[in-house]
């Protein structure tokens, strides 16, 4: 199988602070991946490496077969990047930026760009620097779509967007992706938005551990259990069947990929009565927080 992204034994550190020791994951072509993780787990560093603006200390990170920090111009042509904050040439207008990028990409499709920007109701001479963040996000997405890249890396596309623009962005993206065999790697701080169009998730955890699975498997298999507090001083510990434990005023919330029996056994081994253990439904955001932990 050909992979759009291959991260193999990746190592990186800032001085003595180790970010990853041995990070591994692979992104097959034609799917939409979400890269998720709490603040401080090295998501931004990984995005910089994937985008080719940071050379890893060790291991390999390949984008469409090329080392990410040394992409050939031909491979760069096949990769569309959306930088955090929807970076754009602010001194250019809607029309001039289209003409500029069109000259670099033989497969350029202006109708995809103008299909999106026409909806803004702005003249073609309108400067990008005079746009709102939401309007700019449409311009940037239009440019990436017109480029027709095989791989899109979208870094925190939600930044600065209200609910309406987030929805608009995702609707256009989903419509675009439905038509072709494109690979997308997306990061976002608003995880519930991703549920609508992501195929697989990659959870990045502290120390450089990556857990990769189909979103459907995660939503179906990852469970939240509720255990009322019994006024004891002990707190259930994570480990074995229990992935994470969160505590509220009256109850413990336990997160696990295992069924109630396995979680009950694990609690029993720790000295807890598990009769009152119950499964509680949760949203994708709840599951994300349950998986990665609140703190």
């Amino acid at each position: 199988m050909e992979f759009a992204i291959e991260v193999d034994g990746l190592r990186h550190s800032y001085g003595k602070r180790v970010i990853y020791r041995d990070l591994n994951f692979k992104v097959p072509r034609g799917k939409v991946f979400a890269l998720l993780g709490k603040n401080g787990v090295g998501k931004t560093t990984l995005i910089k490496i994937l985008m080719g603006f940071l050379r890893p200390a060790g291991g390999a990170c390949r984008i469409l077969g090329d080392e990410s920090h040394n992409l050939s111009p031909e491979t760069r042509r096949r990769v569309g990047l959306l930088f955090e904050g929807h970076l754009a040439y602010e001194f250019m207008s809607i029309e001039s930026v289209e003409r500029f990028f069109a000259s670099f990409y033989p497969q350029w499709q202006p109708e995809l760009y103008y299909g999106l920007t026409d909806k803004l109701g702005l003249p073609g001479s309108h400067k990008i620097g005079n746009m709102s963040e939401g309007q700019r996000s449409q311009v940037v997405l239009g440019l990436i779509m017109a480029q027709q890249p095989d791989l899109m890396i979208l870094d925190d596309y939600t930044m600065g967007l209200d609910a309406g623009y987030r929805r608009l962005f995702l609707d256009y993206l989903a419509e675009y992706l439905a038509e072709g065999d494109k690979t997308v790697l997306v990061t976002s701080h608003i995880v519930q938005d991703l549920e609508r169009f992501v195929d697989e998730v990659i959870f990045l955890e502290k120390g450089g551990l990556a857990t990769q699975m189909p979103l459907e498997s995660f939503l179906r298999g990852f469970r939240q259990y509720c255990l009322p507090k019994d006024n004891g001083v002990k707190t259930p510990r994570r480990g074995a069947a229990i992935k994470n434990v969160e505590e509220s005023r009256d109850e413990y919330l336990l997160y696990s990929f295992e069924g109630p029996e396995a979680v009950g056994r694990c609690l029993a081994e720790q000295g807890f009565a598990s009769q009152k253990l119950e499964i509680r439904p949760m949203s994708f955001e709840d599951a994300f927080i349950g998986f990665t932990g609140r703190y």
Binding site: M51, L81, F83, L87, Y105
Partner: peptide, 17 residues
């Protein structure tokens, strides 16, 4: 302006040496 938010990355990703 190119250094603000590292905007120069846009240019450096263009398919050109």
């Amino acid at each position: 302006p190119e250094m603000k938010n590292h905007r120069f990355r846009i240019s450096l990703h263009l398919p050109l040496a």
